[in-house]
């Protein structure tokens, strides 16, 4: 760390760039944060920059959907102390990984007539390719975990990320359980917290945008949904909107994707 300032690189892969925006406009903390760290590479923020590193921290946003991204990711890993995926795309595949439910060619040919020049591969999270040193979850990534990470970095301590389900936050908000009371297909029990139980607090069920909670019991929730009368396809859709390639939600993802056939 030159001048004691951590050198940070920010890399974007296949995603909406919302996390990078969340980072750049770190709300009230933006001014003091920018003074305390050195952002050496972030294309959205500044021209130029040092792509080769070395970095104290590399923040990675986006799903990995191209071969060149894997190669660059490995290079980044080799010159970086802490590699941190930010946001659901990088953490658990996120929305771009919905495409994994069907053959790559089927998906591609719906969008492009000429698929021969496409180089897309199956969508996977960052940790499928390189070891990572923590996750800042959320879609977009959560402010609380981001603040925790930046503070920990500056203090030289280990960050404490949120690792419990949305249900915990829902109880703290004094919400009525929408799953038990209203039989809404709420993903809260298997979804990592951090949003402050946003959806149940706004009269709708959680749709899982923060991705799977560690050791989530997806099968139990899927069974519950089935008892409530949800079709197999509907259950599968709930477990594949965020986190298709994850082991945690796999038991909820029944692969009978024939809904399109009339």
């Amino acid at each position: 760390m030159s001048d004691g300032k951590p050198r940070i690189g920010v890399f974007k892969y296949s995603c909406c760039a919302g996390c990078e925006f969340q980072l750049i406009f770190f709300q009230k903390h933006v001014l003091e944060t920018l003074g305390k760290v050195e952002i050496v590479f972030c294309r959205m923020l500044q021209s130029g920059g040092v792509e080769e590193g070395p970095f104290d921290v590399a923040l990675i946003e986006g799903t990995i959907t191209e071969q060149w991204q894997i190669e660059q990711l490995r290079k980044i890993r080799s010159v970086t102390t802490y590699v941190i995926p930010i946001g659901s795309c990088a953490v658990c595949g996120g929305v771009p990984a919905i495409k994994n439910n069907e053959q790559e060619y089927t998906i591609q040919s719906r969008v492009y007539e000429d698929t021969s020049r496409l180089t897309s591969i199956r969508a996977h999270s960052v940790d499928q390719y390189v070891p990572v040193d923590g996750y800042i979850k959320g879609c977009p990534m959560g402010e609380r975990d981001l603040a925790e990470f930046v503070t920990s970095l500056l203090l030289g301590k280990r960050p404490e990320f949120i690792q419990y389900p949305v249900c915990v936050e829902c109880k703290l908000q004094h919400n009525i359980c929408v799953l038990v009371a209203y039989h809404w297909p709420c993903m809260g029990p298997v979804t990592n917290a951090g949003c402050g139980a946003l959806c149940p607090s706004h009269d709708r069920e959680c749709y899982g945008c923060w991705g799977p909670m560690k050791n989530a019991h997806a099968r139990a929730l899927a069974n519950r949904f089935a008892k409530m009368g949800l079709s197999e396809e509907d259950i599968c859709r709930r477990f594949t909107e965020f986190g298709e390639p994850t082991v945690e939600w796999k038991p909820g993802q029944v692969r009978r994707w024939d809904v399109v056939q009339k």
Binding site: Y13, K99, E102, Q108
Partner: peptide, 17 residues
């Protein structure tokens, strides 16, 4: 910018998603 194929994978999803 790598394509993400939204028009491809939206097929098969529910109207309210």
């Amino acid at each position: 910018e790598p394509p993400r194929f939204f028009e491809g994978f939206l097929v098969g999803r529910k109207y309210n998603e």
